[in-house]
Design a protein around this nucleic acid. Structure first.
Lengths: 345, 345
DNA sequence: GCTGTTCACGTGAACGTTAATGAGAGAGGA
DNA sequence: TCCTCTCTCATTAACGTTCACGTGAACAGC
């Protein structure tokens, strides 16, 4: 096999009559080397095509310059944006990203944590699964900093960066509910995660502020197929099926809030097929501001999530904690902006 | 600091009065160990919470059980689906995924390759950037197998897995062009990549088959903002701006093909604002079958890309090549399916 | 000329694992 | 009794780095 032998520190050293250690120091830019030999070394290293072996390095140094990123589903546009931001920030700081996908399964989550322990990553950014057990504690016990993304599992003493969904929904609902709006429905995902809980809490807060009785309000759970290993994220079909069953000409909400813009697509169709119109008969408020939201008919009022800022903030926080393990726990909830379009009148 | 010392092979060995080597063999399931001690060892290892150090392992074994995945932009839904599929298959085979994002920049691509060399990954799956230099050769020279994804740079002797965009577009255009369709435009991305070239080739092939002169056909390039570090993928706005400038009541195509479904969104608006309708005045054919395509008005005829199959096939191919480095080069182009909806009549 | 300081570099050990080789014990056969 | 064979485990040496030292030379000051 032509598997060309890898060029090592010794190879460079031998060729120059130096020790491996000197070459190491020269390339690391430490100050125990004369400028002359440093130049010689880097020239020879480049000539031979020397590439440092990161495993050897992290074996002795204990640091890996790798960050673990645990995501439930990369096809979800919010998480995709998060991945982009996290990778970009890590790259800028000299870190590489090990990507682990859990598909919202506890088993995969446990395997992911195991992998991260084997690798001895310097830190972890992770979205917890629906029924996250205490797997994450293993990382903390091993001295690996963890920043929770998007979904918060309180009481674990872990840093958190996410979106203030509760306030965003509360404000958006109040703002979208004009005069005459009494019946409000929320089309939610059927997951036991903090994000869903936050949206429902925001929804209730809005009801209270508007003085609308709980009986006028409905929280509907759309069966989710996320865990089935499908790469597609939320499916408009599922929301459509549910909405089509419940919405009729005589029984419909004045304002319908959906847990994501895909659900809104399904709702649009269900509403249309009843002969009702958005926003005259039913106002619709989405969540996520996906790229299509501005372009459907009518353009969808929705909540823009600062995925990029969240990713950036999470990496910043993680790097700070890596540098300073004993700093107090931080919990950041970024505000989300309401983008008003025609679907709410 | 409570940075608990990591449990090592020796710790387990010492506690049982064995050597580290025996513990290693026992846990590796090799046959030089009695069943009795194997049971003892695995019990003690679990009790102490032993986690193998992957760096030490790969330092001596030369294998890392890590695959590099080089992607231009995770927010592109096609690549997001690819990431999901690749990660899933790798996970099933016991490999972890190191994710590198290039943002279509040659500089980032080179840094990515450098990272992969440092890590000594067992294989690489990668989407080449627009003007990919010979950076990928460095991996081959180091004996690291590479499978190109989606975009093919011919002549490098690298395996390739992608979509047969040319045939897909050619067939779809012919099928979408009913009687009376003479003027056909293609709204393309402004990138020098093989995917764009393939679509244009398919477009031309369709024109020839339909007997339409090149003068009746137009290839329009939408300025792309992908490289600007923005996490958003193709922007409908850019397509809208271009289309709105060119399309008027008196000067419009009979059939408009867009390089992706987002462009179709922009085109829809431009067409609508001229007082024209889809598909009566202008038929629209999209590309990608994004989740919203079935739900916009009118539902968009588009081409469904087998991202999942592509990812699976690519990983299979890579694993085969890892096992058998000297097998002949393979180039796979998966067929894409036309999803006919109302936008083409 | 002797000691002390600074600079440039080498030496040896360590990181945690695996592979090659060796060694002791017990069993079985002559 | 001795030899060989097999089974189980230990010993030793790597893998490529980095870190804590040690060392020698040059130079200054007394």
């Amino acid at each position: 096999m032509a598997r060309s032998q890898r060029v090592t520190l010794r190879d460079v050293a031998d060729r120059l009559g130096l020790s491996a250690n000197t070459v190491s120091r020269a390339l690391a830019g430490k100050d125990q080397v004369s400028e002359a030999t440093r130049a010689l070394v880097s020239a020879e290293a480049k000539r031979l095509g020397y590439v440092p072996n990161s495993h050897a390095r992290s074996l002795v140094s204990g640091r890996t310059m790798v960050v673990g990123l645990v995501i439930t589903n990369p096809s979800n546009p919010f998480y995709a944006a998060l991945i982009s931001a996290v990778e970009r920030e890590c790259r800028a700081a000299g870190y590489s990203v090990l990507l682990l996908v859990t598909e919202d399964s506890a088993e995969n989550e446990e395997r992911a944590v195991q992998q991260l322990l084997r690798f001895g990553v310097d830190g972890v950014l992770g979205v917890a699964t629906e029924l996250s057990s205490d797997v994450w504690d293993g990382l903390s016990e091993a001295g690996i900093p963890v920043v929770q993304l998007s979904r918060d599992i309180p009481g674990r003493g872990l840093d958190f960066v996410g979106i203030d969904a509760e306030s965003a929904i509360a404000d958006a609902v109040v703002r979208s509910a004009g005069p005459g709006v009494r019946r409000i429905w929320l089309l939610e995902e059927d997951l036991r995660i903090s994000t869903v809980a936050a949206r429902i809490a925001g929804f209730r807060r809005a009801l209270d502020r508007l003085g609308i009785a709980r009986e006028q309000a409905l929280v509907l759970k759309v069966p989710t197929h996320r865990t089935s290993g499908a790469t597609q994220p939320w499916r408009p079909d599922d929301a459509y099926a549910l909405a089509a069953n419940l919405i009729t000409r005589d029984n419909h909400p004045d304002l319908l809030i959906t847990a994501n813009d895909y659900f809104a697509l399904g709702a649009y169709r269900a509403i249309r097929e009843c002969g009702l119109t958005v926003p005259d008969d039913v106002r619709v408020l989405g969540y996520g501001d996906h790229p299509f939201a501005a372009y459907i008919q009518p353009p969808l009022t929705t909540i823009r999530l600062p995925a990029d800022e969240a990713g950036t903030a999470a990496v910043d926080l993680l790097l700070r904690r890596i540098a300073e393990p004993d700093r107090p726990r931080t919990s950041t909830r970024l505000p989300a902006e309401l983008i008003e379009r025609r679907s709410t009148g």
